[in-house]
């Protein structure tokens, strides 16, 4: 129970960060990516602020023998750059540049009920669900 409650708090902090930073405003994101238009460099400062904090934390925290609530570290270990990674990133980038939402801001904004957010988020979840179904079908073959 305690761990569930703290996960909720960690999610709230993430969401408040997205709200303050401007990531939940698709026009602001598109104006960052549209470098030849009405350029808004704010998103670079979001990444800078986030990485400054997390870079330091990542230097310190994994020195502990284990995370507080898990038996072992569950961090990614792969270092290879394959086609799947690059094609996935390219598809994501195209959708991000077109709609102005990445997954976190879309899920944070959906309760505010703007129709653009609802349509985008519904399609995003359908894409994720469809991908899971496709992967499961491929694994059975």
């Amino acid at each position: 129970m305690r761990s569930i409650l703290l996960s909720l708090v960690v999610g709230v902090v993430f969401g408040v960060g997205l709200l303050l930073s401007g990531m939940t405003q698709p026009a602001k994101v598109v104006n960052f990516l549209d470098v030849l238009g009405n350029w808004d460099p704010s998103l670079g400062f979001v990444m800078g602020g986030a990485i400054a904090v997390h870079f330091l934390a990542y230097r310190l925290i994994p020195r502990l023998p284990a995370p507080l609530w898990a038996e072992r570290w569950g961090l990614p270990t792969r270092r290879d750059i394959d086609t799947r990674l690059l094609v996935g990133a390219a598809l994501f980038g195209a959708g991000w540049g077109l709609g102005g939402y990445c997954p976190g801001p879309a899920l944070t904004s959906v309760v505010a009920g703007a129709s653009s957010t609802l349509i985008f988020t519904g399609a995003m979840l359908a894409g994720m669900g469809g991908f899971a179904v496709w992967e499961a079908a491929r694994a059975r073959r």
Binding site: R84, L85, L86, V87, G88, A89, A90, L91, F92, G93, A94, G95, W96, L98, G99, G100, Y101, C102, P103, A106, I119, F120, T121, G122, A123, M124, L125, A126, G127, M128, G129, G130, F131, A132
Partner: peptide, 14 residues
């Protein structure tokens, strides 16, 4: 719709 599908599929694939 296209943007949402691309973000959903692309982030899982990548």
């Amino acid at each position: 719709v296209v943007a949402g599908l691309l973000v959903g599929i692309g982030t899982r694939l990548g």
